[in-house]
Design a binder for these strands. Structure first.
Lengths: 191, 191
DNA sequence: CCCTAGGGATAGGGTTAC
DNA sequence: TGTAACCCTATCCCTAGG
């Protein structure tokens, strides 16, 4: 259409990287509003920032095949992860400071999370469900990878970290919200 | 940020729709608390329910495309907006369908009949709706007399006699015309 | 404090243009 | 054809008002 695509300048990319170093990825609005970057990124929307970061990330990943010369990854982030670590979440195998949703394949992770939540919701065991029960439930509806069990454990651990699940003994259940400032007992019900 | 978006499953959507059919839109807490739906919707907050319903009902219709292509009307919508239509509060769908209610011997009776048909049309429960659901729906728009329940039952009986409604178990639904000489089954759908 | 309505931001799937 | 740039919308977040 009439809108010529405007390519990102290296200054803009730099500002974006710096912004992410400062606020973390996903804080597009903050990055854009920061007086340090707002002038440079003035013509970019927060969505543009998000899209650009996605492209930058994906490109990096896809091209990492022949590239073995090491940590070519986000150079600028190295120092950032020190001051910013909003949840050095995912990807333990992820060499990069903390962000970079790749490496564990975010899509897959998200899909697993959904299946897990669905399983626990359906099983609705007040004491939580063990991995075997969860697997039994999920495999009724989905083809599972051979290494599903370890992937499952990885996701379960993550969900507990995120506060979405809680682990009681070897069972997992959906975390209830905290009520009245007092956390609900995590003791197992007797029944 | 560690929140992996979890897409709504069709089971959840169905539960939400059923809940809205039962309590009306806006009664998110009631829907979530209902033993019939709570398990399915356990991982959704009342706000999630609200947001989801917002998408399901108004998603596309409000979108105006700056495109100068043919208006091309919202074809995708047809089925989505089918259920309840929350916007029907102001400009009600009282002109629903074409069921004529010619016999207007009594003003009040007629008024109730209209409200009942409107409720059933909106609730659209294939199994029909029970008196509680009908009351829940109607009282969102109208002040009800204290003895409304008995008046309602009286009118429902009358409408069944007139062949306008049919009763299946304890639920009422609008009687479909017979098509192709074969009457629609009156058995309850499984659910 | 919990609830709902509504505005708004983000995440990802899709699409377009080059 | 590949991919950077851009679009669409489901989902999620924040806040005001009850």
């Amino acid at each position: 259409m009439g809108v010529p695509k405007s390519k990102w300048t290296s200054a803009e990319e730099e500002a974006l990287r710096a912004g992410i170093a400062k606020y973390g990825p996903g804080k597009w609005r903050n990055i854009k509003a920061d007086p340090q970057f707002t002038h440079i990124l003035i013509s970019r929307s927060n969505i543009d920032l998000k899209d650009k970061w996605r492209n930058m990330s994906e490109s990096r990943i896809l091209k990492s095949k022949p590239r073995e010369d090491a940590p070519a990854t986000p150079l600028l982030l190295t120092q950032a992860s020190a001051s910013f670590n909003p949840a050095a979440n995912d990807a333990p195998a992820n060499a990069i400071g903390g962000y970079s949703k790749h490496s564990v394949d975010k899509k897959t992770a998200s899909k697993y999370d959904t299946m897990i939540l669905e399983a626990l919701s359906s099983l609705k065991d007040p004491n939580g469900s063990g991995t075997d029960a969860i697997i039994s439930f999920i495999e009724q509806k989905h083809e599972l990878a051979h290494n599903f069990r370890s992937l499952l454990n990885s996701r379960l651990r993550k969900l507990v970290e995120q506060g979405k699940l809680e682990k009681v003994q070897n069972c997992y259940r959906i975390k209830k919200d905290i009520i009245g400032g007092v956390e609900v007992s995590t003791a197992r019900l007797k029944e």
